[in-house]
Simulated assay, not measured.
Amino acid sequence: MSNNQLAKPDPTAYRYAVHSCSYKLDLAQKPDRAVALFDNEALANTFGRLMWPSFYEVVDIRAGEES
């Protein structure tokens, strides 16, 4: 059942991807996929720091697109 109080997400509204970086602990065979997307870099870093204090990375997925 859909909830009309929740806005439909717009993927283009997000700029920062948070990766857990499990490869740094030899826990991954494949490249790490983003686990969360944020429109605010500070929030992305806070989320990463709370989830994986030493092993996360925040990537600007629009880098190089803006002039």
Rank of each mutant, 00 (worst) to 15 (best):
V18K: 03
E66W: 09
D60Q: 09
D39Q: 09
A36C: 03
L50E: 15
A17W: 05
E41Q: 13
A7R: 08
L27T: 05
Q29H: 12
R62H: 14
A13R: 09
A42I: 12
A17I: 01
V58E: 01
P53A: 10
R15T: 08
G48T: 00
F55P: 03
G48A: 02
L50V: 05
N40D: 15
L25Y: 07
S2K: 06
Q29N: 10
V59R: 10
E41A: 14
P9C: 06
C21R: 13
A63Y: 09
N3K: 04
N4V: 04
A13G: 08
V59N: 03
S54Q: 12
P31Y: 03
T12K: 13
D10E: 08
K24A: 09
M51Q: 15
N45W: 07
V59K: 10
Y23F: 15
W52K: 06
N3W: 00
R15M: 02
V18S: 02
A44F: 02
L37H: 12
L25E: 12
K24V: 09
W52R: 10
M51N: 15
H19A: 06
N3P: 03
E66Q: 11
V18C: 02
A7P: 08
V58Y: 02
N4R: 07
R33M: 08
L27W: 11
H19Q: 05
K24R: 12
L6I: 12
M1E: 05
Y14W: 01
A42L: 11
V35H: 05
L27Q: 14
L27N: 05
K8A: 13
A34K: 03
F55D: 14
R15Q: 11
L27C: 09
N45R: 12
V35E: 14
Y14N: 04
N40W: 06
N3H: 07
S54V: 04
Q29D: 12
C21N: 14
D60E: 06
Y23R: 07
R62N: 12
D39Y: 10
A17N: 08
S22P: 11
G48Y: 00
L43T: 03
F47K: 01
D39R: 12
P9A: 05
L37T: 04
N3C: 02
F55I: 07
V35A: 04
C21H: 07
E65Y: 09
C21E: 11
